[in-house]
C-alpha cells in the first residue's frame, strides 16, 4: 500500500532514492538504481553493455536476421566478395559469412555462458571454504588450485580436449576446468579479510553454522569482485574457445564457430581477406565489449569504492 502511494505522489526517482524504504525490495531497488546511475556515467562501459545486448539480440533473432542457411554449401557461389546479396561475402564452400557470424553468436554466448555458470560457482565455493576454515582445509584446497594454475590455460585446455575428444561441449568443460582457480584465489583473499570482521563475529555469537555464514554473509561480499573478474575473463574465454576452434579441437565443421571460421579462412588471407577478417573482427569487438563492461562494473561494484 505504502509503496504504491509513494510511486504515485513522488514519482519513480523519489521512490527509489527514499531515505526510509518501506520494504526490503524498495531498499534493494534504490541501491541498484544508484549503482546504475554510477555505471551510466562511464560511457565506454555503457558502450560495452550495448554491444553485448546487441549480441544477445542477434543470437536470439538469428533465424530472422540471417538471410541464408549458415551451413548450406553452394560451390558455384564460393569466395564471393562483399556485396548487397552477401554483406560479408561467401567462404570457400560458398556459405554466406554474414549468416554464419550471426548464427555463430549463439555458439559464442553458449560457450561463455556455460563456462561462467560452471567455473564461477566452483571458484567461489572453493575459495570461501578455504578462506573461512583456514588450516588444513585451506592448504589442501589451495594446493589443488595451485596445480591448475601451474599450467598455461590454453595448454591445459588442449590436453583436456585431446583426452575428451574434440567438440564444443568438451571445449566448454576444458575451459571451465582451467578457469576456476583464479576465482578461487580471489574469493579466498576476500574471505580472509572478511572473516575477522565484527559482523561475522556477531553472527557467529548468534550460533550461525559455518554453512550459513559462508553462504549468507561471506559470499555476497565476494560476489562483486568475482563478477568483475568473470566479465573481464569473458574476453579470454572467447579467445580460448576461438583458439581451440582454430586448432580444430573446439566446434567441428560445419558449425559456424568464429574461431573455426578464422582457421579455415587463413589459407585465403592474401586473395580473399574477408574470410578471416569478418569473424576475427567479431571476436575482437565482443572481447573488447566484455573488457569495457568489466571495467565499468569495477567502478560500480568494487567494495573499496563504497562509502
Amino acid at each position: 500500500m505504502m509503496t504504491h502511494k509513494a510511486l504515485k505522489t513522488g514519482g519513480m526517482g523519489e521512490w527509489l532514492l527514499a531515505d526510509t524504504p518501506d520494504s526490503a525490495f524498495q531498499a534493494w531497488a534504490g541501491r541498484a538504481y544508484l549503482g546504475l546511475m554510477a555505471f551510466m556515467k562511464n560511457r565506454l562501459a555503457v558502450l560495452g553493455l550495448l554491444i553485448i545486448a546487441i549480441l544477445i539480440i542477434i543470437a536470439v533473432l538469428a533465424p530472422v536476421i540471417a538471410p541464408y542457411d549458415p551451413v548450406e554449401t553452394n560451390i558455384g557461389n564460393r569466395l564471393q566478395p562483399l556485396s548487397f546479396t552477401h554483406y560479408f561475402g561467401t567462404d570457400e564452400m560458398g556459405r554466406d559469412i554474414f549468416s554464419r557470424i550471426v548464427w555463430g553468436s549463439r555458439l559464442t554466448l553458449y560457450v561463455i555462458g556455460l563456462v561462467a555458470i560452471i567455473a564461477a560457482p566452483v571458484g567461489i565455493l572453493v575459495g570461501t571454504v578455504a578462506g573461512y576454515f583456514g588450516g588444513i582445509i585451506d592448504t589442501m584446497l589451495m594446493r589443488i588450485t595451485d596445480i591448475f594454475l601451474a599450467f598455461p590455460k590454453l595448454i591445459l585446455a588442449l590436453a583436456f580436449v585431446s583426452a575428451l575428444g574434440p567438440g564444443i561441449e568438451n571445449a566448454i568443460i576444458a575451459i571451465s576446468i582451467t578457469s576456476w582457480p583464479p576465482y578461487a584465489r580471489i574469493a579466498r583473499a576476500e574471505t580472509i579479510t572478511i572473516r575477522n570482521s565484527d559482523f561475522i563475529k556477531a553472527v557467529k555469537l548468534q550460533g550461525a553454522s559455518a554453512l550459513r555464514i559462508i553462504a549468507g554473509h561471506i559470499m555476497p561480499l565476494c560476489l562483486p569482485s568475482l563478477i568483475i573478474r568473470v566479465t573481464l575473463d569473458m574476453a579470454g574465454i572467447i579467445l580460448t574457445a576461438a583458439g581451440l576452434g582454430f586448432l580444430g579441437l573446439g566446434a567441428q565443421p560445419p558449425s559456424p564457430e568464429w574461431g573455426a571460421m578464422t582457421s579455415s579462412g587463413r589459407t585465403y588471407i592474401i586473395d580473399h581477406w574477408w574470410l578471416i577478417t569478418m569473424p576475427g573482427t567479431a571476436i575482437f569487438i565482443v572481447s573488447l565489449a566484455f573488457n569495457l563492461l568489466g571495467d565499468g562494473l569495477r567502478e560500480v561494484l568494487d567494495p573499496r569504492s563504497d562509502n
Binding site: D198, F199, A202, L205
Partner: peptide, 25 residues
C-alpha cells in the same frame, strides 16, 4: 550471552538491510 562491538561501522553487514541483520538470529 550476546555481545556489542566497538566499531559501529564494522559490526553490521554492509550489504544486509537492518531488517535482515535483525532477522538472522
Amino acid at each position: 550471552v550476546q555481545m556489542v562491538f566497538q566499531d559501529p561501522y564494522g559490526s553490521l553487514h554492509p550489504r544486509h538491510t537492518i531488517d535482515r541483520t535483525l532477522k538472522e538470529p
